[in-house]
């Protein structure tokens, strides 16, 4: 098992190395998107070092301070909220929540979706029928509605948000992997492996799965952006991450009450969400182009017929 994981990791890194990187270096979208994404990831990772203040520390004497340039001071560059907490620090700590909820839920969704999709596509028959009907059922629900219902049942909280995000984002992975497996399992190199005498596990993990990585990489970035927005939406309507955690959606929600007298409380979390989602989407667009058939040919991947 561990050997399978090692080779799978090598196969994954191969797609993300060499030609892909050199393509993306020439793409302005990738550079802008990548920089934005990197800034957010770094501030999330090193929030303790970067943030000027304690994000939970209320300071009623300094409440509703405007940002620099609008009558505020450098002490609180983006101003403070209704109970005097430093907005910049809360945004930086908020990046942790937004990005980690999205990253963890996409990872789980990949695991669930890829497993089910691979089983469905490879074995076909009854398994496929049952799993695809489940997928159809899932798709007939609006995802937001499903996420909201789940949160109402589960109650607010970090891990509950992760669970709701995972349960609403595994379906595209299952469908993509199933589709690719349907064609991959008929390809001559799979027949060649079967003629040698390998088992199904080898064919699924070693022969077929690595060939789905380009699609999975691209899909993951778009699902990441989507889950950031979903987390923010759930927190915004108060059924996501619990206060006083500095979730961007939660900050946006509380900032709404002060939108006329202290616009910055809602403005900056909103901007952060927009920026990070824009960054990830730019990155995803570029990845999609970089892993496209023309470049796939350079990598040696033949188009699925």
């Amino acid at each position: 098992m561990s050997r399978t994981l090692t080779t799978l990791r090598e196969d994954l890194l191969r797609f993300l190395g060499g030609p892909t990187v050199s393509y993306m270096k020439r793409d302005p979208g990738a550079i802008v998107g990548g920089t934005i994404f990197l800034v957010f990831v770094m501030s999330a990772l090193f929030a303790g070092v970067v943030a000027p203040h304690d994000p939970y520390q209320a300071d009623l004497a300094n409440s509703l301070q405007p940002p620099v340039g609008f009558g505020g001071s450098w002490e609180h560059p983006l101003g403070t909220d209704a109970i005097g907490r430093d907005l910049l620090s809360r945004l930086i700590y908020g990046a942790r929540i937004s990005l980690s909820v999205a990253a963890v839920s996409v990872t789980l969704a990949v695991l669930v979706g890829v497993s089910l999709g691979a089983l469905s596509g490879y074995f076909g028959g009854l398994i496929d029928e049952v799993l695809m009907r489940i997928v159809d059922f899932w798709l007939s629900f609006p995802a937001v509605l499903m996420a909201i219902s789940l949160m109402v049942v589960l109650g607010p909280g970090y891990w509950n948000v992760v669970a709701a995000m995972t349960l609403t984002s595994w379906v595209p992975f299952a469908r993509v992997v199933r589709g690719e497996f349907l064609t991959l399992k008929e390809r001559p190199f799979v027949l060649a492996a079967k003629a040698i005498g390998v088992g199904s596990a080898h064919i699924i993990f070693r022969e077929a799965l690595p060939n789905t990585f380009p699609s999975l990489i691209v899909l993951s970035t778009f699902q990441l952006a989507r889950n950031i927005i979903y987390e923010a939406s759930l927190s915004f309507i108060g059924i996501g991450v619990k206060p006083p955690n500095p979730s961007w959606g939660l900050m946006l929600g509380t900032g709404r009450q002060h939108i006329l007298d202290a616009w910055w409380i809602a403005m900056f979390p909103g901007l952060a969400i927009t920026l990070v989602v824009l960054g990830i989407n730019l990155l995803g667009d570029s990845l999609r182009d970089a892993l496209d058939p023309t470049i796939k040919k350079r990598l040696g991947v033949v188009e699925v017929q």
Binding site: P188, A192, G197, L299, V301, V302
Partner: peptide, 24 residues
């Protein structure tokens, strides 16, 4: 038994662009 017999037989396919896994 089938696996053991497979050692004694082999196949070469028509299109070598499709019969070799591109990621290996």
């Amino acid at each position: 038994e089938l696996t053991r017999v497979r050692r004694k037989m082999g196949i070469v396919f028509q299109d070598p662009y499709l019969s070799l896994n591109p990621v290996k």
